[in-house]
Design a protein around this nucleic acid. Structure first.
Lengths: 150, 150
DNA sequence: TCAATTTATTTGTAAATGCAAATAATTACA
DNA sequence: TGTAATTATTTGCATTTACAAATAAATTGA
């Protein structure tokens, strides 16, 4: 076990990449990709999100997301609407076809959760999730300090 | 906190992506990218690795790695050598310039480790790393079963 | 109120990515 | 020993990605 095995970002990337690659292969026959799943999952959690919100939630860069959504719109999985409250913003909505695809992807996603956590006690799994949320939050410290608003 | 916050692959990707993005920005002024760092770190751990080994270690797909290494070779950070023992294989070696860049990146990487784990007890951090190694290993179960050799 | 600034999204463009096919060398075994 | 199968890497090519600039709308404050 070399130094890399003790380096957290390495372990994080490695585990994430492996799950991502396997999941991608698995959903390809359904005409889906990992990125479309991320968008659909975010809309399943809350439909009508803005592009910027989706970008933050899915960790997909906004300009990439724009073109990804273009493709999903062409496939009629989602629909863009101009936000009524703020005409700069666009909200994204799952269509019936999008929801059907989501329903097919959900059990696959659940299986990945189960397989990856195989052998974990419930409290170990929960501790891991708590730790991952802390990691994420800790990165605030390095974020480009944005001008305070308000 | 919606369903996504309880979904492990989501938490994993989100934390990994955030660290990756911040690290990328930070090393850009040094003429480095996250991917070149991954290659250099793998060679720092063990020089003279094969392309396939590097691909597995860095989670960079082999054909992508080939072209990444092309670029690093042009920048004289690494050098390819035909493996003496097996002429199909290519081994990669850090050059003096590559090692100098590695030395400049190491403290940044250490800082990312420290910042991301801020507030973690030593044993919590270790438990997290153990868990991430288990996750990775658990994915064996879903791997395309390759024909047994031997 | 209106000009300047900020915010949300899209577009331009070059680089990175990944699958599949091609190339090259080794190994297995008839 | 020589031919088929396997393994390691690279190349072809279409897609994805991300930075920067452009566009469009809202907000701020003189």
């Amino acid at each position: 076990m070399g130094p890399l095995d003790g380096y957290l970002p390495y372990l994080l990337n490695r585990a994430g990449a492996r799950i991502a690659t396997a999941f991608s292969e698995e959903v390809r026959p359904l005409g889906a990709t990992l990125q479309t799943w991320r968008v659909l999952a975010a809309l399943h959690e809350r439909d009508g999100r803005r592009m910027g919100d989706l970008s933050e939630t899915t960790s997909i860069e906004v300009s990439t997301l724009t073109r990804l959504v273009d493709g999903m719109e062409k496939k009629a999985l989602v629909a863009r609407r101009r936000d009524a409250a703020d005409a700069r913003a666009v909200t994204l909505h799952a269509t019936p076809a999008g929801r059907r695809l989501t329903q097919r992807l959900l059990p696959i996603a659940e299986r990945y959760e189960a397989v990856s956590l195989r052998g974990f006690e419930a409290r170990e799994a929960e501790a891991l999730k708590v730790a991952l949320r802390r990691l994420y939050a800790n990165m605030d410290a390095l974020e480009k300090p944005r001008r305070q608003r308000g």
